[in-house]
Amino acid sequence: MDRIPILKLGSALLVTIQVDMHDRLAKALEDDITAKIMTTGAKGVLIDISGLDIVDSFMGRMLDTIASVGRMLDATTVVVGMRPPVAITLVELGLTLVGVKTALNVERGMALIGISVDDFEEVDRHDGG
């Protein structure tokens, strides 16, 4: 089965969702992120959904669950780049994801979890060198 890749950037995980996910793929992603937080000790999880043109209640619930599980594992989850029509529809649906932090883009999301872009460039250089 296909899987959504999870990148490690410094002490954060970056997940970019670009395909329309069916429910099993969403569930697999939830499991993968949880496992990856444990193995990497990540302090933050950024989920970039700027490529998604809908988020329904199932995907909304998945985002909520990831954030809650992450919190218990001491990682802050930030949902990044939700498009206006998607946000309007989610609110209309009755899902406001109050437990989830949000940011306009990945850079702001990084800042929100206390990691600046410079920080992980630093890390990357260390990793590379």
């Binding site: 949902v79 939700m82 206006p84 989610l90 609110v91 949000t102 940011a103 306009l104």
Partner: peptide, 9 residues
């Protein structure tokens, strides 16, 4: 306001 927050503003 709720939708803006979901977008990160």
């Amino acid at each position: 306001v709720a939708a803006a927050r979901l977008m990160g503003a």
